[in-house]
Nucleic acid binder design. Structure first.
Lengths: 134, 134
DNA sequence: CTGAATCCCTGCCGATACTG
DNA sequence: CAGTATCGGCAGGGATTCAG
């Protein structure tokens, strides 16, 4: 846990419950900002999927990362894991209502990108043109 | 640039312009999900600030990271950098309209956290209780 | 099929020191 | 004041192997 920021904020008299919120905001942003989480959520948005299906649907993800991502999502209550006692085993992952609501919040950023994509790309190329990196 | 995902998506026939958007969505999410960007944007939301003021306002950030973060934000056109030819030098950073619009989009996630904070925390503790990690 | 465990490499980021 | 340069730790994540 990032103790540094917490103590820095506390040192300047920020209210504890406010620090908690700031901490969780950063935590959630880091989570949705990681390499795979949003892709997994997006894949689950259209309905429940089992492990292998997810592995196929989310392009390029490794088993390790899929497993880890799903465990974290399950832990936060964004995804439910249902294991059926069969042979071979079958496990289904489903987006919870909480997970859907987060997905909707993330959609806000997706829409922002869709609206401002051209502008950002243009800014980048213009910046590189005026700021030569030798 | 994550070539892997791009080729994986291309291999299954996803439209090129759609891949570009997906790429930029991940890029923006990774940016706002990094350790400092949102804090810097939040600090600039209330008005222009110079380098040192930002360094004091954003708790715990190093000069290196502040400088780097500001350069990336400037490159994308989210922040403008204005240097005054004085001694000692003075540089002001200001959020652009584009930066403000992104800030608003991120607010959606902040609100989500504020609404569902308790639920997430509760889910986590419950998960740890039912999933003992020796 | 659904993972967990291990190895290893890369890149992020903090600390420190230096410049115009 | 406003940065850049350099070094080093360490955590994210990919490939592979093992297990239930």
């Amino acid at each position: 846990m990032d103790t540094t920021l917490r103590s820095d904020l506390a040192a300047r008299g920020v209210a504890p419950e406010c620090i908690e919120t700031i901490d969780l905001v950063r935590d959630v942003l880091a989570r949705v900002g990681d390499k795979w989480t949003v892709l997994v959520i997006a894949a689950l948005a259209s309905g429940p999927l089992r492990f292998t299906a997810l592995h196929e649907q989310v392009a390029g993800i490794s088993q390790r990362m899929l497993s880890q991502t799903l465990r974290l999502l399950t832990k936060d209550g964004l995804v439910t894991r249902t294991a059926y006692a069969e042979i071979p085993p079958r496990v289904e992952y489903t987006l919870t209502p909480l997970g859907r609501s987060l997905s909707n919040a993330v959609d806000g950023i997706v829409h922002w990108v869709q609206e401002h994509q051209a502008e950002v790309v243009q800014n980048r190329t213009k910046f590189e043109a005026t700021h030569p990196r030798p």
